[in-house]
Design a protein around this nucleic acid. Structure first.
Length: 445
RNA sequence: GUGGGUAUAGCUCAGUUGGCAGAGCGUCUGGUUGUGGUCCAGAAGGUCGCGGGUUCAAGCCCCGUUACUCACCCCA
C-alpha cells in the first residue's frame, strides 16, 4: 500500500499523489474519446435484485440503508433494498436496457467511477476504488470484430500511461470449455476455477485439486494442464492445441476467435497482447473472449485490467444486448505506481507562479499581475502576507512552485526561476513560462 | 469469514534481565536592517492503540479488546 489510510481499504491521496491519479484519469479519458467512446455516469446505488441478478451472491456487496429504519427491521435479502455497485458492467447493462430507445447501437461507452466491495483489503486491493471501463454493446448481435478492437483500444490507452511495460493476456471461454467437453469433463466451470490458480499454486496442486475436488481422471487433469500451459505471442497456439488431439465444435469456434484477436494484435500492438490459455476469469457472465492484464515486473499485483465478452448480461423481453468490455483498476494501478514506480508530480500545487508582496498595500496591484497571467492560462497565487522575501520564496519552494514574481515600488516587474536562481525582467501581459512548467508534470523519480 | 504479525513524537523507527521517554527526518525560531535550499545554534512536539491484571515499580510480563497488516478466499 502506498500510504496508510485512516480507514483500511478506503485510500485517500495527498495532493501530489492525487495529481498523479488525475494525470492517469485525464490520459484514459483522452484515449477512450480518441477511439470514439461516449461517456456516461450511472448512479452509485442499484437495487440488490439488479446486482445479484447473475448470481453474484458471493460478492461482498455493501448494502445501503438509513441509520434508523421506520420499522427497525434489517434490509436483509429484500431485492428492492439498495446497495452500492461493485463494478460498472452490471449497472451499465441495466442502463442500456432502460435507455435502449435513446441509444444508437452498437453503443460504445466509457465510464470512470468509484465502486465498492466489502473485501478484506490488502496490497493493491481496496474496498472503495476507481474503475475505468470501456464496453461496446450491440442490439441482438455484436460482431466479433469488437473483441479484437477492444484489445487494441486498451493496449493504446495503457501505452499512453507512465506505467512501464504490460501484457494483455487473452483467452477464450469457448476454447477452454470446448476442450474440457471434448475430454468428457462436465464441470467445466470448476476446472476453470482451479486452472485460474495455476500461476499462484503451481501445476501439481492444481492437478490434485482437479482430481480430488472436481472428480476428473488423472489423464483429464494432465490434458487440462497441458492446455493451460500454452502461451504464445502469435497464432501458433492453434497448432499446439490441435496437437493435444481433443475435438469439439465449441473448441473450434474458440480457436478461430482467439486466433483472430491475436493475429490482428501482433500487427497493431506487437508484444503487448498474447494468447494465454490459462486465463479463466472468475465472473461467470463471460461467454467468449476473456482478457487479463499484468504489469511486467508486478505480476504478483494481479490483473490491472480485465474483461471479456458477455452474450446475455442485458435483455429486455426477447431482445438481448450482447457486449464486450474491459475495466482498468485505476486505484490498484495508481497505488502501485506511487509506491513502487516512483511516480511523482513535479509540484504539490497547480500554481506555476507565486506573486510576492513588497508590503501589505501591494496586494491589490499583485492581483492585477495575477489576473494578467491567468488570462493566458497560467496558474497563479498571490502571497498572503508581505513577509521577508526569503520567507515568500521558501513558501514557493516548499510547494514546488517554480516561479516567484517581484514587482518593485517603481512598478517594474521581474520573475525568478527559483530552481536556477535566474531572475529576469518580465511583462505580466506577455511573459509565459515554458510549456513543461505550465502544469505539474508526472515523472518517475 | 479463517489463520499469522504489528501497534512508542507529524513520518520512519530504537528502547537491554521490568528501574526517570529516545534518535533520524520533518516543523518552528534565531544567525538583523527584505531573495529560499547548504551550514550552525536553539525550541516545540508523546494518555507508549484502548481496558484490566501481576509487581515496590510496566513501553517491556499476563488477559481482553480495537485498529492496521500479511496469507487464504475472491478479485481491479
Amino acid at each position: 500500500m502506498a500510504r496508510k489510510a485512516s480507514l483500511s481499504g478506503f485510500p485517500e491521496w495527498l495532493p501530489n499523489e492525487r495529481l498523479v491519479e488525475l494525470h492517469v484519469l485525464d490520459s484514459l479519458r483522452r484515449s477512450f474519446e480518441l477511439h470514439g467512446f461516449s461517456n456516461i455516469e450511472t448512479r452509485a446505488v442499484e437495487t440488490v435484485g439488479q446486482l445479484l441478478r447473475k448470481g453474484e451472491i458471493d460478492k461482498e456487496v455493501y448494502g445501503l440503508s438509513r441509520l434508523q429504519n421506520d420499522d427497525g427491521e434489517a434490509a436483509g435479502t429484500d431485492p428492492h433494498a439498495l446497495a452500492l455497485h461493485f463494478d460498472l458492467t452490471v449497472p451499465f447493462a441495466r442502463y442500456v436496457v432502460e435507455n435502449a430507445g435513446h441509444l444508437a447501437f452498437p453503443f460504445r461507452r466509457y465510464q470512470i467511477q468509484k465502486v465498492w466491495r466489502g473485501e478484506r483489503p490488502q496490497d493493491g486491493r481496496f474496498r472503495e476504488f476507481t474503475q475505468a471501463d470501456i464496453d461496446v454493446v450491440g442490439d441482438g448481435a455484436l460482431p466479433f470484430r469488437y473483441d479484437v478492437e477492444l484489445a487494441l483500444v486498451i493496449a493504446d490507452a495503457l501505452s499512453a500511461l507512465p506505467i512501464g511495460d504490460f501484457t494483455v493476456r487473452v483467452n477464450n471461454r469457448k476454447l477452454a470449455e470446448g476442450f474440457y467437453l471434448g475430454l468428457g469433463i462436465e464441470d467445466t466451470a470448476g476446472v476453470l476455477r482451479n486452472i485460474d490458480k495455476l500461476e499462484k499454486i503451481g501445476p501439481e496442486r492444481v492437478a490434485e485439486a482437479l482430481v480430488n475436488e472436481i472428480g476428473t481422471t488423472e489423464e483429464q487433469a494432465r490434458a487440462a494442464l497441458a492446455l493451460a500451459s500454452i502461451r504464445t505471442a502469435d497464432t501458433s497456439f492453434v497448432e499446439q492445441v490441435r496437437a493435444l488431439g481433443v475435438e469439439h465444435e465449441l473448441l473450434e469456434t474458440g480457436l478461430t476467435e482467439l486466433a483472430e484477436v491475436i493475429d490482428v494484435a501482433t500487427r497493431r500492438a506487437p508484444g503487448q497482447v498474447v494468447a494465454d490459455l490459462s486465463i479463466a476469469r472468475g465472473l461467470d457472465y463471460y461467454t467468449g473472449t476473456v482478457y487479463e492484464t499484468v504489469l511486467v515486473g508486478h505480476e504478483k499485483l494481479g490483473s490491472i485490467c480485465s474483461g471479456g465478452r458477455y452474450e446475455s448480461l442485458a435483455s429486455k423481453g426477447n431482445r438481448v444486448f450482447p457486449g464486450v468490455g474491459l475495466s482498468i483498476g485505476v486505484s490498484r494501478l495508481v497505488s502501485r505506481m506511487l509506491s513502487d514506480g516512483g511516480l511523482k508530480a513535479s509540484r504539490d500545487v497547480p500554481s506555476a507562479v507565486l506573486v510576492a508582496l513588497n508590503d501589505d498595500d501591494s496586494w491589490y496591484p499583485a492581483q492585477d499581475v495575477a489576473a494578467a497571467l491567468r488570462a493566458r492560462g497560467i496558474a497563479v497565487e498571490v502571497a498572503a502576507r508581505a513577509e521577508k522575501f526569503g520567507k515568500q520564496i521558501r513558501y514557493a519552494d516548499r510547494r514546488g512552485i517554480p516561479y516567484v514574481w517581484f514587482t518593485s515600488a517603481e512598478g517594474t516587474h521581474e520573475v525568478k526561476d527559483i530552481r536556477s536562481g535566474e531572475q529576469v525582467v518580465a511583462d505580466p501581459h506577455a511573459w509565459t513560462p515554458p510549456a513543461e512548467d505550465q502544469h505539474p508534470g508526472i515523472s518517475a523519480s
